[in-house]
Nucleic acid binder design. Structure first.
Length: 554
RNA sequence: UGGCCUGUAGCCAAGCGGUAAGGCAACGGACUUUGACUCCGUCAUUGCGAUGGUUCGAAUCCAUCCAGGCCAACCA
């Protein structure tokens, strides 16, 4: 999955597979990623993808992409397209193929027929309310449906007529005949087929009955030859039903389900339902709004696939509920960009600097390394002149302890160019600093001072006459909730992750920016201490600058 | 208050009866023409949710308790 991710890491899924192999398991390892096409993939999806994909790769196995499209009213082709794009972007090539759960509807129907014929499933006429009543509660057993003992012939007839469209939505269901007294609610005669006259994005109007997830999923897995069906932990309670379906249909090669804890990240909303709500209510510009935790948004922000995979690997795979610090994600992109991304100098909040001993009209260029850590990145020529801008926060009139940057009567290195000394501060009528008058040590010219004195600080600068102006889009984190750290003791902030909280979603702010880029050159930059980085492959975490207005901001 | 799952540092996480890996974060310091990076150091001193027990020896086994997660859609 990308050259930087040949190391598949380790997790307990591998241990399970190792144990299977040690016990004589002789089938080729086969996994799958089964998203429902009802939204865009997000960084939590990346974890699920990585777990299944890496398990297949580690054992020279097979990895399928399968759209789990058994609920026609929620699914859409827009999502199908985006999912495949994002999956491929991550590098998780489905070497086993791309499938649709709905393509197995014929088999699902036949298997349901088979279960009915064997007396293992029946057509139930209970209304939803009645069914709820008969189901019992967490602490009380349910009771058998009055329709549970219908004859096989009658069940078969009814099911066929359900398929023919004879009945209204919800009028009847097909239920697996298991155990209404089970302590596992999923085993209390679960519905496996429902009537739903709806347009399916792929099957169109072919069907008016649809198999439920618990019935369709194990069938899909078995049919595709999946050996290890990996899913998140909320399906743990469904495993007995999964096995029931596999066993009672009588698949020879049985897939097995294993669960892992899903990914949570601090300050980040991962619920697809809420994400969709943000999109649909227009609180964000779309699924790829830079504030979203979707893969498409992260891509737009400049996160690389490998940095996301690295994050997922470092966060680990276990069954314990956890919330990973988003700073780990930021670390992963920082680590990668630091090694590879070309740099530019940039100034967001400019303060003018005039080099008083530098002749008016004169200009010269300095070669500056594009990436000091990577010689092959080469250099660029940056034009220097009498009038410059530097970052306002690189100057401190009253410097704090250990201050290394510009200060009154202090010296600082203009990166790649001269050492300058601040001699005078010019102010407006309100006393605000508007300009610094400096002198350059013209001997230094990108060298150390001839007298051997030490000048510690180094700051970015741009030439007033040559800097390229752009738009900066600044934002922090993904969804940041205000005062998250000030929540009452003992309260889980995830409780606050609801649409009401998200009303406070921070807006993207456009700010001016100047950089030593070429006119029209597109780049994002990341501030990491005091440097900037570029570009189409670069990413971000603390702040982003986009020189081109490549996305709209409300 | 039924069942299943989980509980190791601020955040993740390894550990699977032999004396607490690693990463992120944080904090010192060195280096530095990016206060970045890099480097060095500190960071669970009998402590692994708690309490008992078994054992020469327990984070690892047993019991009880506590805390958190999931489950009562004709969603996935």
């Amino acid at each position: 999955m990308g050259e930087t991710n040949t190391d598949l890491g380790s997790n307990f899924i591998y241990d399970i597979i190792d144990a299977d192999i040690a016990a004589g398991f002789d089938r080729q390892i086969h996994t799958r990623f089964p998203p429902e096409p009802n939204g865009y993939l997000h960084i939590g999806s990346a974890k699920a993808i990585w777990i299944s994909y890496s398990a297949a790769m580690k054992y020279n196995g097979v990895f399928n992409l399968r759209y789990d499209d058994t609920n026609p009213v929620r699914e859409d082709d827009e999502y199908v397209k985006s999912i495949e794009d994002d999956l491929l972007w991550l590098g998780a090539v489905p070497n086993g193929g791309v499938y649709y759960g709905s393509d197995y509807f014929d088999q699902c129907y036949d298997f349901a027929l088979q279960l009915i014929a064997e007396g293992k499933a029946y057509v139930c006429d209970l209304t939803p309310d009645e069914m709820r009543e008969y189901r019992g509660t967490l602490t009380e057993p349910g009771k058998n449906s009055p329709w549970r003992e219908r004859t096989v012939a009658e069940n078969l007839d009814l099911f066929r007529r359900m398929k023919e469209g004879e009945f209204e939505d919800g009028a009847r269901t097909v239920r697996a005949k298991i155990d209404m007294t089970s302590s596992n609610m999923n085993m209390r005669d679960p519905v496996i087929y429902r009537i739903l006259h709806a347009w399916h994005h792929r099957q169109e109007d072919k069907w008016c009955i649809y198999p439920m997830y618990d019935f369709a999923h194990p069938i899909q897995d078995a049919l595709e030859g999946i050996t290890h069906s990996l899913c998140s932990i909320e399906f743990e309670n469904h495993r007995p039903l999964y096995d029931w379906v596999v066993d009672n249909i009588g698949f020879e090669k049985k897939p097995h389900q294993y669960e892992f804890a899903r990914l949570n990240i601090t300050h980040t909303v991962m619920s697809k339902r809420y994400l969709r709500e943000l999109v649909e209510t227009g609180k964000v510009d779309g699924w790829d709004d830079p504030r979203m935790p979707t893969l498409s948004a992260l891509r737009r922000r400049g996160y690389t696939p490998s940095s996301i995979i690295e994050f997922v690997k470092r966060a680990g795979v276990a069954k314990a509920y956890s919330i990973v610090d988003i700073r780990l994600l930021e670390y992963c992109i920082r680590e990668e960009l630091n090694a590879a991304a070309p740099r530019r100098m940039a100034v967001l909040d400019p303060i003018k600097v005039t080099i008083t001993n530098y002749p008016e009209g004169k200009e010269e260029t300095f070669p500056i390394a594009n990436n000091p850590l990577e010689e092959s990145a080469g250099t660029r020529e940056v034009t220097f002149g009498r009038e410059l801008y530097v970052e306002r926060e690189d100057f401190a009139e009253v410097p704090p302890p250990k201050w290394q940057r510009l200060r009154p009567d202090g010296e600082v290195r203009l990166m790649g160019a001269y050492i300058v000394r601040c001699n005078e501060i010019l102010r407006d009528e309100n006393g605000n600093v508007v300009e610094l008058l400096c002198t350059a040590d013209l001997e230094t010219r990108n060298n150390t001072p001839v007298d051997g004195r030490k000048v510690r600080g180094t700051i970015h600068w741009v030439s007033v006459a040559h800097a390229v102006e752009g738009k900066a889009c600044l934002y922090d984190n993904l969804f940041t909730l205000e005062n998250v750290n000030d929540l009452p003791e003992g309260e889980n902030y995830l409780d606050y992750l609801n649409p009401a909280s998200l009303a406070e979603l921070p807006a993207c702010k456009l700010e001016a920016c100047m950089a030593d880029a070429k006119p029209g050159e597109r780049f994002q930059f990341v501030r990491m201490g005091y440097f900037c980085m570029d570009t189409k492959n670069a990413g971000t975490f603390n702040r982003i600058v986009q020189l081109k207005d490549s996305f709209k901001v409300k």
